[in-house]
């Protein structure tokens, strides 16, 4: 899942300050699940913005809409009939959604209300942690299901650096050393030998080093 969190209020306010008619658009997918931009957060942010404008003695008209998925043109199309009524769009979706909106409605400025952070998993209620960087060449089969690209601060592929200490990374005491985790997991799986295999230098072109990526499924093309 893509995770995001709301931008600082000041930044959001600054971005929309010239406008008094706003579409505030949420997304019922990833950002709902990570409580950053679903119907609830849309409602809250709308409320906050209205309060801010009230305090300034200004009025703001906010239309709250939460789309099923902001990164699909069909869902984004739902705004078409009403987009002319607004001066700006504030999107609470991830960057994909913001761009889809901006690409569809070229006459209207679209601003992000959240910072898209990472692809992560839910560790517990209210906690999400980075798990994947989308490198395009998955190594998890070699590393006991723990990704060194996403979870090692230095993206090392052949064991920990000297900064590891008692299983923790040197950047912060609450960050696990990915390679310690990998070693423990391989041991538990009886696959210690894997650890000794040298991984060759990674080809980062598939990770975006070769420019923007795209998937084309020819069988699905219409």
């Amino acid at each position: 899942m893509i995770t995001a969190e709301q931008k600082p209020l000041k930044e959001i306010i600054d971005s929309i300050s010239p406008y008094e008619k706003i579409f505030l658009v949420g997304c019922n997918e990833c950002v709902t699940v990570c409580a950053a931009g679903g119907r609830k957060e849309v409602g809250l942010l709308a409320s906050v913005l209205r309060l801010h404008y009230l305090k300034q003695g200004r009025t703001i008209e906010i239309k709250e809409i939460t789309l099923e998925r902001q990164c699909d043109p069909e869902y984004v199309e739902e705004l078409a009939s009403e987009i002319h009524r607004t001066e700006a769009v504030l999107s609470m979706a991830c960057g994909c959604g913001v761009q889809t909106l901006a690409g569809r409605y070229r006459e209207t400025p679209v601003f992000p209300a959240v910072n898209t952070l990472f692809m992560g998993a839910s560790e517990a209620q209210g906690i999400w942690a980075e798990r994947c960087q989308g490198c395009g060449d998955c190594l998890l089969g070699l590393t006991g299901g723990i990704c060194p690209v996403a979870r090692c601060s230095k993206h090392l592929l052949n064991g920990p650096c000297g900064g590891t200490s008692h299983g923790k990374c040197e950047i912060a005491p609450d960050v696990d050393c990915a390679w310690c985790l990998i070693w423990e997991r391989l041991k538990a799986l009886g696959l210690e030998k894997r650890y000794e295999e040298i991984m060759e230098a990674k080809d980062w072109r598939s990770a975006g080093g070769g420019g923007p990526r795209k998937i084309v499924r020819k069988d699905l093309l219409l």
Binding site: N28, E29, T32, V33, A35, G38, R39, S122, Q125
Partner: peptide
């Protein structure tokens, strides 16, 4: 039609 199956209610 609105549920995102996010599990928050299941946990809460």
């Amino acid at each position: 039609s609105k549920c995102a199956a996010c599990l928050i209610c299941v946990r809460a």
